[in-house]
Design a protein around this nucleic acid. Structure first.
Lengths: 153, 153
DNA sequence: ATATGAGTGTTATAATATAACATACCTCTT
DNA sequence: AAGAGGTATGTTATATTATAACACTCATAT
């Protein structure tokens, strides 16, 4: 799909960025959190909490839901992942943009998601909000449709 | 909050619009569907499926989840309601705009939601999508923050 | 070394949503 | 008016997503 670079090569890079972020923020990327983040990046698509849970668990050892939800909460709070609301699923974040603004192109055919980094629309949305007397703290845009690859098929 | 007119007076108007829509689309606004739509409009805020279910049910008569989910599905398909993804909740739709585009201001303090009707941002989002080779079919924007009323408190 | 807070383990349950199949009921045709 | 075919509803069960609550462990900072 649009994975010009992201998913193919950059899990390590993402982890390394996360580690730096955590040092800077004085929070801890513990083994569980790191593992969950790796699993999220390994997935080409948004991944669900219970799928992560299954992947975390081995035959003789089963993780419990709070384990993964706590890791997700931590990663989300620290802007290392995004939640795709329309899918109850989670995706890695490049972290080179502000946390309070995210936009996604979601292909309903292949289920892959591309994050848009684009400041103008945010600005417009913020201004429209302000006009209504509303003070925005977080903007989430989810655009569903068909990606170019799937359109060609 | 921003309910200049919407929630205070217009349940009947909303139902009447829905009836017209259904006649035009040759679909049926059955008693259950109508009741669910009324309950949604009666709520000043997005309302959850199980809250609707509770309101539909009386002491001696309990509706089951599929009843309300089917009604919600019908109303949503026919663009009579929106789903607020970040809240798993449903809100009435004015229906005087295209179904594939919705934007909401969501107050995290009082939980009220205002729908924005604004064509420019859509257009921009559509164009950005196209540039990526993406064909959008549906745009959902959820802006969280604080409404003017709550800001004053 | 020990108090403190952060992180994890564990059990249980809450909240949200759908599958599958049976029954009723519209409405169209004859 | 009877029956066929599709739409809607009733019902049971279960799947999926998420959190509460409490016990325990561990890091680290004085």
């Amino acid at each position: 799909m649009w994975k010009r670079h992201r998913h193919s090569e950059c899990i390590k890079e993402a982890i390394s960025r996360a580690e730096k972020t955590c040092i800077a923020r004085k929070c801890r990327l513990t083994p569980i959190r790191k593992k969950v983040l790796e699993l999220i990046w390994k997935s080409h698509k948004p991944i669900k909490a219970y799928d992560l849970l299954a992947q975390l668990s081995s035959d003789n050892f089963t993780e419990k839901p709070p384990t993964v939800y706590r890791a997700l909460e931590f990663l989300h709070e620290n802007n290392l992942i995004h939640r795709i609301e329309s899918q109850n699923a989670y995706i890695g974040c490049n972290a080179d943009h502000d946390s309070f603004d995210s936009k996604f192109l979601i292909c309903d055919k292949c289920n892959e998601v591309e994050e848009l980094i684009e400041p103008k629309v945010n600005k417009a949305l913020f201004e429209i909000s302000k006009k209504q007397g509303f003070t925005p703290s977080l903007v989430n845009v989810e655009i569903h449709g068909t990606c170019s690859q799937c359109a060609q098929r």
